[in-house]
Design a protein around this nucleic acid. Structure first.
Lengths: 344, 344
DNA sequence: CAAAATTTTGGTATCGTTTGCGTAAATAAA
DNA sequence: TTTATTTACGCAAACGATACCAAAATTTTG
């Protein structure tokens, strides 16, 4: 059994008109008499006519839909960003298609290709941690598919991008820990391919430098699967703490890595107590943690909004846009207990 | 500028064949010679031909896509269920469209209509807290749109449904609190329209009854916006605790309500300490709470999987299915600190 | 009142793909 | 070689909607 809906043909037949007349009447064309118009519109409403978007997409070669590619929706940052995207999209008559990569490059490629072939008018992309080859995206983009990157951007592709100030976020977080008296500050971060990983690392390094603390390569740990592989995080933590120069504080990157890290530390009795930590996170639950979690919070909703606005700008611009900019938004550092155990 | 992709026509032109031959060659029809077949297939691969799904949808009147309607994705239960749905969907070649209602009835109607008009082959629905009129869903369903409900089901619509044993979940949670010595157990729950709300309430009541505790209407509080309206939850909590017969324990329904409730209690100094509580939640973070949270956990991933399997069964069945069943899955009660402060 | 101008409507191609039907070419049987 | 069978392919319609162009129907003008 298949769901059947009313078509313009049904209306035409019923009213003894041609499909073209009906079509024009429905979109209020000036060349249709008001009698006919009324007749058609009333009847259409009566039988609850809904234009078939598939047929429209085929005809107009656009779908009034955009695609979102994110690592995962079960992540406060991304779900908040999606809410921001949707708020703008609905206002402008766009429908939104969400797809998750689960930090897998392969899944990402499949999803992006799928979106492209489904006549998405544009894509909002935050790449996966595994993505170190963006050529397929570049290809699609060069063939005219509008793309706006947010958060996990690809630096080499020339289009609009929306990020928060990752350098500053990491810098402030690190500085905060330093001021608490910590000197052995580890940085647990996402995969080294990611542009944001690099920026955050730079902020971290700069803070150390400004406070004359020697940078120690061994205190930086990458999670190439962005925290999806718990063992990877656990191994990083364990080796970090079993090394001679165990850290006394940690700054972590991203919602997932932060929470997985905390959970690993909680269950790892081998780890000495009183580690100070602060992480990038947009979760609403961090206040309920014990200790409550100090975080670097990104304006996720705003970032989503902005990204969607820029995408619409590209989609609806008459002539190809040549000059792109990267919008950088402020992150906020929120100090709670987890980083507030001053070390004398 | 618009993204253009290769069509069957391009191949036909290039190879001096008709579109029908190309089409048949690509889908391996027996009436095409193997030479031609190879020629076409090779060329198609070379220029990376991808059939246009829009055209296919129009022709076949199905999209190989299904729609998910959930209250929100920033909710562990639903995001886990979505993961389960996706895992089955991808395996069967279905694409998944997610949409959020944010617990709004109006948004839900818009989203469902949109999905239906976009030739979704079927819908997986968990209704919003505000939904107390399901006639539009019933209508669509009667017109042949395959629908499977999960979690927030509509009892009156005759189709497959997937739920967890809400009665038992609430019964066990309540019993657990009773055994800890609590007698004034409040129940903060979602909107009274929801079927699951009713079932959980029944479980709660039965537990009280079995342990000879008198049911007190005033200890049950409904959040008609499913926890999206924080003030609503706050008011419920405050009035609950300012009443003569203030509760000494709470059992809460659903991820959002549970976390909002905890957060409200945390920030409400007027509330006496040492309230025991346990909530329905699928969050992975509850262990990090202070106190760590006792929960009733639903097999969200499994529920999503099952729902998707049932939907596929409906979609792909040759003849209309007449006999539907409701799959009930076991919930699990996980005891942590929040409910473990025994009252003598 | 006829011719011209204007308004209103219908016919048809189109988007990309599949599919039933028809037919030329190739092969097999006579 | 002629006729009967296959085999291999092309034509055209269809899915639902739109848009250009032409054809009615109507109104205006001389």
């Amino acid at each position: 059994m298949k769901y059947e809906s009313v078509t313009i043909k049904d209306i035409a037949q019923q009213l003894n008109l041609s499909t073209s007349t009906v079509s024009r009447a429905l979109r209020g064309s000036y060349e249709i008499s008001s009698k006919t118009k009324k007749l058609v519109v009333d009847y259409a409403k009566k039988i609850n006519y809904q234009p078939n978007p598939i047929a429209l997409s085929l005809k107009e070669r656009r779908s009034h839909s955009i695609g979102i590619i994110v690592p995962e929706i079960a992540n406060s940052f991304f779900s908040q960003a999606i809410d921001g995207i949707e708020s703008v999209a609905y206002k402008h008559g766009y429908h939104v298609n969400i797809s998750q990569t689960h930090e897998s490059f392969e899944r990402e490629m499949i999803n992006v290709q799928h979106m492209a072939s489904r006549s998405m008018d544009g894509l909002l992309v935050s790449v996966s941690a595994e993505t170190n080859d963006s050529s397929y995206l570049k290809n699609l983009h060069e063939r005219g598919l509008p793309i706006v990157f947010f958060d996990r951007i690809i630096d080499e592709i020339d289009t609009y991008k929306v990020v928060c100030d990752n350098f500053k976020g990491a810098y402030n977080a690190t500085t905060h820990l330093i001021k608490q008296g910590y000197k052995n500050i580890a940085h647990i971060t996402s995969s080294s391919h990611l542009f944001i990983t690099k920026k955050r690392l730079e902020g971290y390094k700069k803070a150390l430098e400004d406070y004359k603390i020697k940078f120690n390569e061994n205190l930086v740990r990458y999670c190439d699967h962005g925290g999806m592989d718990i063992e990877e995080v656990r191994n990083n933590i364990i080796s970090l703490f079993s090394s001679k120069n165990a850290p006394d504080a940690i700054i972590s990157a991203g919602d997932r890595i932060t929470t997985v890290m905390i959970s690993v530390m909680k269950n790892q009795s081998s780890i000495k107590k009183k580690i100070a930590y602060i992480g990038f996170s947009n979760s609403d639950l961090t206040d309920m943690f014990s200790p409550s979690l100090s975080v670097v919070r990104q304006p996720a909703f705003e970032m989503g909004k902005t990204a969607m606005e820029l995408l619409i700008k590209i989609i609806e611009s008459k002539r190809p846009i040549k000059e792109f900019e990267t919008k950088t938004m402020e992150s906020k550092i929120i100090i709670k207990e987890s980083s507030l155990i001053p070390k004398k």
